[in-house]
Each structure stands twice: as structure tokens, then as C-alpha cells.
Design a protein around this nucleic acid. Structure first.
Length: 521
RNA sequence: GGAGCAGUAGCUCAGCUGGUUAGAGUACAGCCCUGUCACGGCUGGGGUCGCGGGUUCGAUCCCCGUCUGCUCCGCCA
């Protein structure tokens, strides 16, 4: 590291280099000071193919690279604009505790042992959800916070154990008010940061429609491929693989027609078959359309012999297949079909270069309030247990009940999720009952919320955005690790600091903790 | 908890059907050149082939286990 004092001057004739940003000038040094020397760096800064483990081990050097500087600058610009926007709209930035109470529902908590309370633990917040609701009860009508959240679950390219959320809550509002405001905020953000004009308004789609058409509750609208419902056509066919799920109320038979997909090789189709098996699909039937006008003779498929002419014609018509198309089929429980074909849709679009460029935001609404967990034999909240239902009676038919939740989806990523909350203590108790949380348990875990609701709670609702994901998308990074200064690896360790690490016996004694050896587990 | 890919020089990688001296580029060090800017030329040092075990006359290569990184499923209300 050098400090050079001198005179900037034009380069002499013949030494100008137009390929360099500074190729016109040079510095005539008058004084040079060595501020600090450096060891040979572990990797070269101009090498863009360095392994991520090396980059993370020497993150302070990795962050010197221009691409990383730009990403963190973009992140700062995003948070600055979001804060500015919300400040202008009279939102109040309020901090909530990091040391708080464990929650029974939801993700695994990070626990922090209490020194002053023998055998008791704090939890790090999975989100400030309940605190922001309490703030609404306190009359803080508009709240926001850019806040760290913690979830002790396994990591992904877009999931870190600690991540940052833009958390927002408002009183005396309904879905329309907050969704409109959040759209305005996002349009402003994209205009200012990327000079991108997002649609006005954002399209909105029901959860049900999204699952039907895209097999996903976060559809990527840059891909025009859609699933086609064919359950009704398959109810009578002899092919049991199709007929059984077609007649199962929980089942589904759907088709995915890929124009120009006929060129796919046997090997590629086999690869797709094993790809969908990841999601539980037992196979991947297909029909290649060689010549649409030739009827059955123009088709090529192992399952053709099981399907009568009228069914085949109906499939071709409904999927709008043409010569050169390939039609894939999923037949199983609806959940398996949706996940398998939904993922296949994106995979094929990527492989065949069918992803449009640009930005496609949308809202997903009308979520089911509850989902039946067959393993645990109980209802789960699809969103969270503080989400308001859109009906007064949720207990007679939980399955049919929709919630007042809304998710913002951008290019196939869930970037924000929120809802109108429950502000009536009786309704909150009813939700706990459906979820199988006893009165005693509800009182123990959420008593403070139920008590607060009794003291006059305004109708309220809010939303939380995944800031890391948003910045990842805006910067074109493929992992949120690339927009976080010091991220963790997939096993949730920090290669830079070598955290986590064992605690000293003295620390453990102070916390009343004894570590069991792994053999005893 | 599960599936897949990867692990060889500081870094990025190659290494054939298992064969005796494990290579390249780059980086690094020394020397030469001195209007160069991805400089150039010469020379040189640098390896626990992730780790442990097995098969074999012989293992970087095959097998088993294990650790680490990445992608994904489960999980993430």
C-alpha cells in the first residue's frame, strides 16, 4: 500500500493507451511513501474463478474485487432509498429485541443461554412479527425496520441462517392500501437504482390459479410455458398411471407442452425423468408431435397405445401442440405433479433458452389459511398463525378457509410476504385451536399477544421483504452470499472467523451448561 | 436426514485402461530488458494428489468410510 504525491500530466505521445480508463494520463511522482507492505495474496484479484471457500476464508481480500464493491454499493443504495421512501411516508423506524422468546410454530430457533436465569434460554428472532403487531397496539401507526432475522434451518443459495428483512406494518388499512404502497415503493426503487419501469399495477393471481397454471406459488412469468389440466380427460382411460390420480380428489394429471421440444434427445428426456424424480414423480410420460396433421401416426410416444383417439385429440387441442412440440405429463398427487412439472417448466425454459429478459413482478393472493400435515396429523398455518382469515368461522371447515395474505413474487422468487393480521382475541384463539395449540400452551407461548389484543387493537397488516434476495436479483448475483459481506457456508459456519467454536469450560459453567459427548446422543 | 458434483503446486485446472520422474497456465523468487500497462526473455523454488482404511506386484486413478465446499430434496409457520 503506497501513498504517492505528484503531478498528474498527459502521457507523452506514443504512450497513450485508449484501452485503459486512465490511459490518457500518468502521475509524475514527487514523493512516495510505503504505508504498509503485503504478503502475496492467496489469490489474484483479477481471477473470477476462485473457489468460494477460498474467497470466504479471505473475505477481506475478496471484497476488494470491483464486482463485490459494486454489489455492496448497490445494497447500500437500495437500503438508503427504501429508508428514504418510508421516512417520507411517515413510517417510524423502531428497533425490536434480538434477545427474545422462543416460538413453538415455525422455524427452528437459535437459542441463547441465560446466565442470570438458570436453565433458561432466549431465542434470536425469526422475525419481529409479534413486536411489530404490539407496536400497532401502541399507536405507532406506521412502522418499519431493516432488521436481522435468524432461522436455524438448512441453507440454500438464497437462504442464510441470519438474513435481513425490510419489515413493515401499518394500522387501519386493508390489503389494497398496503399492496398499492408497496408497489409504489418497488417501482420507485427499480426506477432509481436500475432505471427499470415496473408495471403499474402489478398483476395479481390467486394461489389456486398459480398452482394450476405454473405448479408453483412463486411463478416466474418470464417463462411463457404453462401447465395444462388434463385430469378430466384421463378419468376413463385404461392407463392406470393416469386414471388413478385422475379419479383421486387429491390427484392431478397435467401436461406441459414445449414448442420445438421434439428435438430433445432420448438422453435429455431421461435426464428430465430423473430430474422430476427429485420431487417424487415416479416417471415422466411424453408425446412427441412429429406432424400434427397426421393424427395418431404423426405422434411418437410409449404411452400412445393406452390412449383413445378422442383423448389424444383433446390433449393436442388443449395444449395447443403443433408439429415439433413435445408434451410431458405428470400424474400423481396434485402436490407431486405441481412440484415436478413446476420445476421441469423452469428447467426446460432455462435449457432451451426460453426465459425472457426483464422484470416480472406479481402478487399471489387468496392463500389457503391452513394446510393438513399428514405426518403429524394436524393443521399448519400456510402463512403464520397471526394472519387474518377472510371468513368469520374458521373451525367448521379449516380446509376451505382462505387467508388475507399476499406475497410479492419477482422472476420466480418470493421477495416479500405479508398479510392483514388478526386483531380480535377470539379469532386469534380460534386459530390456535385449529392448529391444535391448547389454551394453556397458547397462554404460555403467546399470552402477551392475547393479553395485548384485549386492550384495544386496531385493524392492521404488514409485509416483510427479503432484502438479501431483492439485492441479489437486482445485482444479477446467483446467491445471496454474493450480496452479504460476511456470509456463512452451507453448514452454517464462518470460514473467516472459524465460528462456531467450542466454549471454554468457564463460560459453560457460568451458563449452567454441560455438553454431552456425541457418542451418548 | 437424503441425492448429486467437486477436492492434485499459493490460485485456476489437466492427468488416458492402475504402471515406476504428477504436468500446464498463472502467481512467487533471482537475473536480463527498460515507455511498459495481461509487457517480454532466461533461470529457479514450490506437491501429505483432502484424510483414514481396503483391493493390487503397484493406487492421484478402483472399492469402503470420513471431512470440507457447492447445487438440490426434506426442512425454512
Amino acid at each position: 500500500m503506497l501513498r504517492i504525491q505528484g503531478r498528474v500530466r498527459h502521457r507523452p505521445d506514443g504512450t497513450v493507451n485508449p484501452d485503459l480508463p486512465t490511459g490518457q494520463v500518468e502521475v509524475l511522482a514527487q514523493e512516495i511513501e510505503i504505508l504498509n507492505s503485503s504478503e502475496t495474496p492467496p489469490f489474484q484479484l483479477d481471477d473470477s474463478h476462485v473457489g468460494e471457500d477460498i474467497r470466504l476464508r479471505y473475505r477481506y481480500i475478496d471484497l476488494r474485487r470491483p464486482i463485490m464493491q459494486e454489489r455492496l454499493q448497490l445494497r447500500a443504495k437500495v437500503t438508503r432509498l427504501l429508508r428514504h421512501f418510508l421516512d417520507e411516508q411517515d413510517f417510524l423506524d423502531i428497533e425490536t429485541p434480538m434477545l427474545t422468546k422462543a416460538t413453538p410454530e415455525g422455524a427452528r430457533d437459535y437459542l441463547v443461554p441465560s446466565r442470570t436465569h438458570h436453565g433458561q434460554f432466549f431465542a434470536l428472532p425469526q422475525s419481529p412479527q409479534l413486536f411489530k403487531q404490539l407496536l400497532m397496539m401502541s399507536g405507532m401507526e406506521r412502522y418499519y425496520q431493516i432488521v436481522r432475522c435468524f432461522r436455524d434451518e438448512d441453507l440454500r443459495a438464497d437462504r442464510q441462517p441470519e438474513f435481513t428483512q425490510l419489515d413493515i406494518e401499518m394500522s387501519f388499512i386493508d390489503e389494497t392500501v398496503i399492496k398499492n404502497l408497496m408497489e409504489t415503493m418497488m417501482r420507485h426503487l427499480f426506477k432509481e437504482v436500475l432505471n427499470v419501469t415496473l408495471p403499474n399495477p402489478f398483476p395479481s393471481m390467486s394461489y389456486d390459479e398459480a398452482m394450476q397454471r405454473y405448479g408453483s406459488d412463486k411463478p416466474d412469468l418470464r417463462v411463457s410455458l404453462e401447465l395444462t389440466e388434463v385430469s378430466d380427460l384421463m378419468a376413463e382411460v385404461e392407463f392406470k398411471v393416469f386414471a388413478k390420480p385422475a379419479n383421486d380428489p387429491e390427484g392431478r394429471v397435467a401436461a406441459l407442452c414445449v414448442p420445438n421440444g421434439k428435438a430433445l434427445s432420448r438422453k435429455q428426456i431421461d435426464d428430465y425423468t430423473s430430474f422430476v424424480s427429485i420431487y417424487g414423480a415416479k416417471g415422466l410420460a411424453y408425446i412427441k408431435v412429429n406432424e400434427i396433421s397426421a393424427g395418431r401416426k404423426g405422434l411418437q410416444s410409449p404411452i400412445l397405445k393406452f390412449l383413445p383417439d378422442d383423448v389424444i385429440n383433446a390433449i393436442l387441442e388443449r395444449t395447443q401442440a403443433d408439429s415439433g412440440s413435445i408434451i410431458f405429463f405428470g400424474a400423481d398427487k396434485a402436490q407431486v405433479v405441481n412440484e415436478a412439472l413446476g420445476a421441469l417448466r423452469l428447467k426446460i425454459a432455462e435449457d432451451l433458452n426460453m426465459v425472457e429478459s426483464g422484470w416480472k413482478p406479481l402478487w399471489i393472493v387468496d392463500y389457503p389459511m391452513f394446510q393438513w400435515d399428514d405426518k403429524e396429523k394436524r393443521w399448519h398455518s400456510l402463512h403464520h398463525p397471526f394472519t387474518a382469515p377472510n371468513v368469520a368461522d374458521i373451525e367448521s371447515d379449516p380446509k376451505a378457509c382462505l387467508s388475507r395474505a399476499y406475497d410479492m413474487v419477482l422472476n420466480g422468487n418470493e421477495i416479500g410476504g405479508g398479510s392483514i393480521r388478526i386483531h380480535d382475541p377470539e379469532m386469534q384463539s380460534a386459530v390456535f385451536r385449529v392448529l391444535g395449540i391448547t389454551t394453556e400452551e397458547a397462554q404460555e407461548k403467546f399470552g402477551f399477544l392475547l393479553d395485548a389484543l384485549k386492550h384495544g387493537c386496531p385493524p392492521h397488516g404488514g409485509i416483510a421483504f427479503g432484502l438479501d434476495r431483492l439485492v441479489m436479483l437486482m445485482s444479477g448475483a446467483s446467491s445471496i452470499r454474493d450480496v452479504i459481506a460476511f456470509p456463512k457456508t452451507q453448514t452454517a459456519s464462518c470460514l473467516l472467523t472459524a465460528a462456531p467454536s467450542p466454549a471454554s469450560p468457564a463460560q459453560l459453567r457460568e451458563l449452567h451448561i454441560r455438553v454431552r459427548s456425541e457418542k451418548l446422543e
